[in-house]
Design a protein around this nucleic acid. Structure first.
Lengths: 137, 137
DNA sequence: CTTGACCCTCCACTAAGGGGAAGGTTTATC
DNA sequence: GATAAACCTTCCCCTTAGTGGAGGGTCAAG
């Protein structure tokens, strides 16, 4: 049984985060000591690490909760896990697409701006009225 | 002079957002009516639209504040605007890079999961201990 | 005169924690 | 035994960029 800071180190998470995961009922410590300290088992730490990895894979807390249920269910069909993962991939693809378009448009804007000390600027122009004017007014 | 809902329509923003921009001192209405209604001028609406476009370009509120200052400064050097835009592009590039790596790794994981009714799953395995095991335990 | 469409302010909520205060516990040192 | 450092607790506020709603005032039409 580990106190929170030891558990946090082992799970490679900040203490605040571990406490927070307890508060929201994602990973609750097995027991409390007489003085009220949270005490974590190795199994708890495995779950914390699991969530930590899933979060690094950009799964939301709710998705982590779902994955954690599957993690604990030894009868889980792998199809469910795969489905959640494919959804996550689709989400990322969509975000990638948006960001690419945004980037290209900003790049275009920056490319058409001479970027010197003169006040006219096509970027401001575009933001001002949606057309690519020089933005001097 | 337009009341808030008219201003919101003209700026193509939700009323709540227009009020919010006033609250945070980003775009404050020119005056208030006797009864306390916010009254916006055409110039205010131009600023609101400007911010709306910049937000759609994923500039943060703080960046919008900076851009708005430049928008209002007829002496602005275009170099400053360009610099902010290039910073934004770099930020997006970095996020793109992260997301691509994440996507590829998830794709790899999903590809190695048979996705049927059996309980062993390499995705869970990876999340459990970082190695690509089948995740049955 | 009342109804409905506006408008106001204030409060709470979102995601996922971070920062810090006030106070109790434990451990090491003197 | 005293004390100080390190650790733990709960509680509250802060973040982004708004959104939703309650409770109440204003205005124009019928």
């Amino acid at each position: 049984m580990y106190k929170i800071s030891e558990a946090a180190i082992r799970a490679n998470l900040p203490v605040k985060t571990v406490r927070y995961y307890g508060d929201i009922g994602l990973v609750t410590p097995a027991v409390r000591s007489d003085s009220g300290y949270r005490l974590y088992t190795d199994s708890d730490i495995a779950k914390l690490s699991f969530v930590g990895r899933a979060r690094r894979y950009s799964f939301s807390i709710d998705q982590c909760r779902e994955l954690l249920d599957l993690y604990e269910d030894e009868q889980r069909p792998s199809s469910v896990v795969k489905k959640i993962t494919l959804e996550k991939i689709a989400e990322i693809d969509s975000r990638l697409h948006e960001l690419k378009e945004l980037r290209d448009e900003l790049q275009h804007l920056a490319g058409s701006c001479h970027g010197d000390s003169r006040p006219d600027c096509p970027i401001i122009g575009k933001l001002s009225n949606g057309s690519l004017e020089n933005g001097k007014f």
